[in-house]
């Protein structure tokens, strides 16, 4: 084939490259949904396949992150429906990683936080993660979850209130080194 045509192909804005850039965040979201790394990776794998198959419906340069999150989330809930409640064997959100690296964040005890996050209803946890950690706007998150923007806002707001209650902290940055570790040591860690 002519070199020119070859160059043209190689230099195309790459769908693969765009997907690669989104994978770390997509995978973190998958872990938050499934609670397990191996299941999360299976889910990401299914998402890659699905996304690749329907890439013609995606316009390069537009919001691939929201598009991929939507595919992954749809895939997760459709698999859950197929499997019924069997999926509930989850150890909870982010468990494995934290079991391996419990003190990575020093005095800011994430294990404790993770427990509080696990105690939230699924829709609230998902909302607070998409807005607070994945970096989506309310509009984007609402589209990913197929709900109204107002619903998304109220889920986040309820999640935040609940987390503050569970952690007994205010919304401000008043966490001292021991403000939370006291709570942790008084709890039996079963993880």
């Amino acid at each position: 084939m002519p070199q020119e045509a070859n160059d043209r192909l190689e230099n195309q804005p790459s769908f693969k490259r765009e997907m690669l850039a989104t994978l770390p965040s997509l995978r973190a979201f998958a872990v938050s949904l499934t609670g397990k790394h191996d299941k999360a990776d299976d889910l990401v794998q299914d998402t890659i396949m699905k996304a690749w198959a329907k890439q013609s419906s995606f316009e390069l340069g537009t919001n691939i992150k929201a598009w991929l999150f939507t595919i992954l989330r749809n895939e997760f809930y459709s698999q859950m429906r197929k499997r019924g409640r069997e999926v509930q064997d989850s150890d909870g959100v982010f468990t494995e990683r934290l079991a391996v690296h419990p003190s990575q964040y020093g005095s800011m005890d994430l294990k404790d936080f993770k427990k509080a996050l696990d105690a939230l209803p699924d829709d609230q946890r998902e909302a607070v993660i998409l807005i607070g950690a994945s970096g989506f706007s309310y509009e984007e998150a609402a589209e990913i979850c197929k709900c109204a923007v107002g619903t998304m806002k109220s889920r986040v707001s309820r999640a935040r209130t609940r987390l503050q209650d569970l952690l007994q902290v205010s919304g401000e940055a008043d966490y001292g080194p021991d403000a939370l570790s006291a709570q942790v040591t008084s709890q039996t860690q079963t993880v």
């Binding site: 995978r27 973190a28 872990v31 938050s32 959100v93 990683r97 990575q104 800011m108 607070v128």
Partner: peptide
């Protein structure tokens, strides 16, 4: 802050 630390640890 903690939400992002948790998420970031996987990311």
């Amino acid at each position: 802050v903690r939400l992002r630390a948790l998420y970031g640890s996987v990311q």
